[in-house]
Amino acid sequence: MNPETTATETAMQIERSVLQDAVVVRIEGRFEFGTRHDYKRLIGQIVQEGHRRLVLDLEGVTFVDSSALGLLLLTDQNFKLQKGHFSLVNPTGYVRQVIELANLPRVIPVYDSIGEAIAGNAEAIALRTPTSSGVTIQ
């Protein structure tokens, strides 16, 4: 725990793990313009490593802004281009309201738990559903 309010107000913690064949990224704190570089760096690394399934756990996120919404849309586009799958897990409170207000769940699946997201990812990949651009997921 960091007792310094000012430091925690602008901080974001981000960590990755692997569950089955999905990468799970957990974010805590503020996901916004001031913390975008940490997110971009980690997601760029994951994309470069060739992972096709990414689950973003937002349960610990306390604030999102337009930069974060843009990054989520970009991440989704990246994974779709690579015939992969990207989903969000458990945004809460105001964060969920901003995401819903922007209609992001129409584009990016939102699940209530990591288990559901991984199952949903696997199903989407297994179904080999045509993407919106008409490309078949292999």
Binding site: Q97, E100, L101, A102, N103, V107
Partner: peptide, 14 residues
């Protein structure tokens, strides 16, 4: 109230 706006469906991603 934010939830009211969510209910009104102001969403921007179609």
């Amino acid at each position: 109230h934010i939830s009211k706006k969510v209910e009104r469906g102001l969403g921007v991603v179609c």
